[in-house]
Design a protein around this nucleic acid. Structure first.
Length: 418
RNA sequence: GGGAGAGUGUCCCGAGUGGCAAAGGGGGAGGACUGUAAAUCCUCUGGCUACGCCUUCGUAGGUUCGAGUCCUACCUCUCCCA
């Protein structure tokens, strides 16, 4: 591991955030000498960030913690274009309204990690729509476009992949890298931002910005990218059956979020503790030394710490408690996901198929419910369902006044009469 | 505008060229084994009021006892030429 002079790079390096850095020595000296300003760009393609955004966001966190100034750049303008990097299909063009809604929804997430001015900090929230939307085409081509060589743009991976696989790459998307490069230069002008960070797939885009800055303003800009995180078994991180692991609590509850981290593979625990929690490294070292089944303790710490960072300490403890009761004590906690049913409906009796497929959506259809029953995957109050004609009534209410429906070992929903 | 090719089970990739919901893989789900892990093994992965019925191969028609497959028109995409 390289040793740096600046706290910032030392922390990132020690915790495993660094994949590539341009001119590491120069950047290090600059960060050691005084405050630097760095930015990370975020798409507004969805109403919430997901786990994949967490890594770059943690870099902004450490940046601020080590005395520098972070900029969260919202892609209100660039999202209207669409980044072709890493995608072999054109993205649907989003309307300005949707982008604006997404932007507002995403914004809240950053205040969990960064202190903005209204919160006594120095972090900046920028939106590239502020300068991109009003660009004049001809002026832009003359000022910025002339610095780009199409020959070189064609050689970038994001472009090459589309061409090689004979997929369409629209001129709109082809311009994305120019806009992102321009963003960097603009942030440099406005806020003296000299470093852009991002995932490893952003390297090409960021380097373009560095070149453009040098040509337009003789500015010295730097790039730092984080490694692409895959799980120990090689899968891309952050996808579950239900889709992406979102950061907004209304899309993925703190309990589900906690579960996501709890189910981390053994081989990832140490790495994830360093990347996704802010625990001191010596403590992480201790946790990582645990072997075999004891590693589960480390996973719980990982889950609770990561959840606390995102959803607050209280929600994290509650999720941990719910998990403990559900998995270790065999009882259940009222904070499991709950579906309410009218008491009268329950009095009349509810078919199991209906309960699982319609009420709780644990399974996707009656047919799916039947299959799961056959496979022994459905449980009512921890007892396997064997008869698909079984009817749930008030008699099935436990002492806690609810019926616990389970799919497999991990997914539980409470049915509560009201 | 001219020429060539592609669109299949609504998660993805992909066989299928007149006859059974349509091979195979990935991904996913459940079970077994475990530690709420990984690996491995087994099962499943269109819908329903279910020994039957309905819906599905880009869209709309047509030929046929029968169409993913043949014909016609159209849509979308890719490549080459202009």
């Amino acid at each position: 591991m390289t040793t740096y002079k600046s706290d910032f790079l030392n922390i990132l390096s020690a915790r495993g955030f660094i994949h590539q850095v341009s001119e590491p020595d120069v950047l290090d000296a600059k960060a050691a000498a005084g405050q630097i300003t760095a930015c990370i760009g975020y798409d507004c393609t969805a109403p919430s960030l997901h786990i994949g955004h967490l890594l770059p966001t943690m870099m902004l966190y450490w940046l601020q913690q080590s005395g520098h100034r972070p900029i969260a750049l919202m892609g209100g303008g660039t999202t209207r274009v669409g980044d072709p990097s890493g995608k072999d299909e054109s993205r649907k063009v989003l309307t300005a309204e949707v982008i604006e809604e997404n932007l507002v929804s995403i914004r809240k997430t950053f205040s969990k990690f960064l202190k903005f001015e209204n919160d006594g900090g120095n972090a900046i929230m920028a939106n590239n729509a502020d300068w991109l939307n009003s660009l004049n085409y001809i002026d832009f081509l003359r000022d910025v476009g002339r610095h780009f060589s199409v020959n070189r743009m064609l050689s970038f991976d994001s472009v090459k992949m589309r061409l090689e696989r004979q997929h369409e790459l629209s001129f709109l998307e082809f311009n994305y890298m120019i806009l992102q490069a321009y963003d960097f230069v603009e942030l440099n002008k406005r806020y003296d931002c000299s470093l852009q960070m991002g995932g490893s797939d952003q390297w090409g885009n960021i380097v373009n910005g560095i070149d453009l800055g040098r040509r337009m303003n003789s500015a010295s800009l730097y790039a730092l990218t984080a490694p692409l995180i895959t799980t120990a078994s090689g899968a891309k991180m952050g996808k579950t059956a239900a889709g992406a692991v979102w950061l907004n609590a209304d899309l993925v509850s703190p309990y589900q979020y906690w579960q996501f981290w709890r189910n981390t593979e053994d081989g990832d625990v140490s790495r994830f503790l360093k990347l996704f929690t802010i625990l001191p490294l010596d403590e992480i070292a201790k946790l990582s030394a645990l072997q075999g089944a004891e590693l589960n303790e480390a996973k719980k710490v990982l889950a609770t710490e990561a959840t606390a960072l995102m959803h607050g300490r209280e929600a994290a403890e509650e999720a941990a408690g719910t998990a403990r009761k559900t998995f270790e004590e065999g009882t259940f906690s009222g904070s499991l996901p709950t579906i309410e049913v009218a008491r009268a409906t329950l009095e009349q009796g509810i078919g199991v198929l209906y309960a699982f497929a319609e009420l709780t959506s644990l399974v996707s259809s009656n047919g799916d419910a039947r299959r799961q029953i056959k496979a022994g995957g459905l449980k009512v109050n921890d007892v396997n369902v064997t008869d698909e004609k079984m009817v749930l009534t008030a008699k099935d209410l436990t002492v806690d006044g609810a019926i616990k429906l389970s799919l497999g070992k991990k997914k539980h929903v409470l049915l509560k009469p009201v």
